[in-house]
């Protein structure tokens, strides 16, 4: 492998990692902070991609970003209302919304399951035009992706320090306390899911524009892939401060993508991505649990040996 090609490899991993890191940030908010496992992530990612692509094809690349976020926010609102006001179990609410979104997404794409943006102006082609002739020309995908990821990370860590951010964190941390306080946990859950889903949708919107196409499966498996990145990030540092943890999430997304790209280079078939993500998620969640049970298991085995 030459230096140039390995640099390219890292750059591709970085681009994809940064774009998908927005979904990781979304899960950091909903899964790590709010304590809700939002199973509508896959559908919401596709929704953002589809809504963004439609707006891009209508000739408004900038407008595609708020449009995707708004669509994601609405999807999050539905998931939240189902679980906070209508008595639907939170996992089921996510699954139901995810399933429903499949139809919604095809409807958004005008009845087709594939949209091409080959000739359309996207946020990335605009960056390409802007950087033409400069030394950074080759980074026309990387730079916008990095800007969006860093801006989202900055805003999210600032948000988590606001009163609403603290209330969302407290809802995930000690629900009993929030229930008997003046904060309505239904409201904090709703706000948290709206924000996290708009980030997920933005992530999908950017990925679609960088690939210049959307298909109905663009988001499938995204929840597990992003969760794997989130948990990888968690392994690297057990930092306590929120801004640090948010930055580590970006880093985790990059490391995950880099590992994946390297594995592809080593002739791992591309279809293995999801299995590997699943295994990473299982290991990252169950390892601490099994570790804490180790002394008990050891004692049991010793007793058996003695008997």
């Amino acid at each position: 492998m030459t230096l140039i090609s390995s640099l390219n490899l890292i750059q591709t991993a970085l681009e994809l990692g940064l774009i998908c890191s927005l979904t990781v940030l979304a899960l950091f908010l909903s899964y790590s902070m709010l304590g809700v496992c939002d199973l509508s992530t896959d559908g919401c990612f596709t929704l953002g991609a589809a809504a963004g692509a439609v707006v891009v094809l209508a000739g408004h690349p900038w407008l595609s970003l708020p449009a995707a976020m708004l669509a994601g926010c609405l999807s999050g609102l539905v998931t939240a209302v189902l679980q906070t006001r209508m008595g639907v179990n939170s996992l089921l609410a996510g699954i139901v919304v995810n399933t429903g979104l499949y139809s919604v997404n095809i409807a958004v794409m005008g009845g087709s399951s594939l949209l091409n943006m080959n000739k359309a102006t996207t946020v990335f082609t605009m960056a390409k035009d802007l950087l033409k002739g400069s030394a950074l020309e080759g980074m026309w995908k990387l730079i916008p992706a990095a800007l969006f990821a860093l801006a989202a990370a900055g805003l999210l860590s600032l948000f988590l320090r606001t009163r609403l951010g603290l209330a969302i964190r407290a809802t995930g941390d000690n629900l009993a306390m929030v229930k008997s306080s003046s904060i309505d946990p239904a409201f904090t859950t709703t706000a948290g899911l709206c924000i996290s889903n708009s980030l997920t949708a933005l992530s999908g919107c950017l990925l679609a524009q960088s690939q210049r196409s959307v298909n109905i499966d663009i988001g499938s498996g995204m929840l597990t892939v992003a969760l794997a990145s989130l948990l990888i990030g968690g392994v690297f540092f057990r930092g306590r401060s929120i801004p640090l943890r948010v930055l580590i999430m970006l880093f985790g997304a990059f490391v995950f993508r880099l590992g994946y790209t390297l594995a592809l280079r080593l002739n791992m078939p591309a279809f293995m991505l999801r299995l590997i993500s699943s295994v990473i998620v299982v290991i990252a969640i169950s390892a601490p649990y099994l570790h804490s049970r180790m002394p008990l298991i050891k004692r049991r085995m010793e007793l058996k040996r003695e008997a």
Binding site: L166, A170, A176
Partner: peptide, 15 residues
Amino acid sequence: RGSAPGLTIEENLSL
């Protein structure tokens, strides 16, 4: 029951 363990003392008070 009355405070969020993952938030700092200051964050709990400000909440």
